[in-house]
Amino acid sequence: MTSVIVSSPYVSPSKSLRQLMINVIIGLVPGTLAYIWFFGYGVLVNIILAIGLALIFEAIVLKLRDKPIKPHLTDFSAVVAAWLFALCLPMNSPWWLVLIGIGFCMIAGKHLYGGLGFNPFNPAMVGYVALLISFPKEMTTWYLPQVISGQSLSLIDSLAYSFGLFEIEHWDAFSSATPLDQYKTGLTQNLAASEIFQSPVFGALGGVGWEWIAGGWLIGGFWLLISRTINWHIPVAVVCGLLLFATGRYFLDTATVASPVFHLFSGSIIIGAFFIATDPVTAATTNKGRIYYGLMIGMLVYIIRSWGGYPDGVAFAVLLANMCVPLIDYYTQPRIYGGQDQDE
């Protein structure tokens, strides 16, 4: 009879990187489907273009760095980053916009820092912010939800449009600012919140369509929690951080300030809380630190939305919080078991 001698560690990690990434992709599906349903195939074209280009960039850089290509491509981390990046873009973005953004995301955001696991900033957000400050016109032309504009493009037309092979007639009937953008512009025109919300783009909770998409992200977020891909600390803290400010200010001034519910269901706060802020590489690593980190993102989003120059601030908030992660981690190191607190 033979016995197998096994050395520690006896508890093997339950999830590989690949399994984690597949869980995130499954979590992204409901929200993405809602997004495509309301805004047409342009969303899908963005995602496919971004993933394809991301894999090409990843392969080129890995080749330059003499790293094995296949294991890095099949761990799906590039796919997740590209997917998240594509969701930030306006629908039917021109191909070169996706190319530049994903190039920044993969090369400057990820590989210049040493690749997956070494990047201090969320790569998808690095790519998005680079585009946002470089191409303000292209990055703020959004579509109306199809239920309002009553027009839709077929998949082939969407694809052709991204490559400049197809012209949209009556462009004005299609395009519109996002609800958050409209709200912000309305405020600068000294309109009260109740007047701004008369516009047909606003629904019961947030913007028409946007509230359902946010619901989709919420379902995906719960899947991430149930499958233990992420911990509850960061999403809860992000939402609390936002609600803390939004509720406080709403009760002080209900006439001009948007309700906390509108803030929660507009823009990208839910996807940001569950999918972007929780990136294990760039988020804080201790549980206490994660709460501070999440609160900071939530508060910064509200501050940027209310007093900043941009209508939404999730990307900037995440990048700023990423910057503080080493500091947060340093001050929230848990007590070593058996050791003493320094205060005692």
């Binding site: 680079a130 400050i133 470089s134 191409f135 303000p136 292209e138």
Partner: peptide, 8 residues
């Protein structure tokens, strides 16, 4: 159209 990042 210009690539603003290069100027910033």
């Amino acid at each position: 159209g210009g690539f603003l990042l290069a100027v910033l």
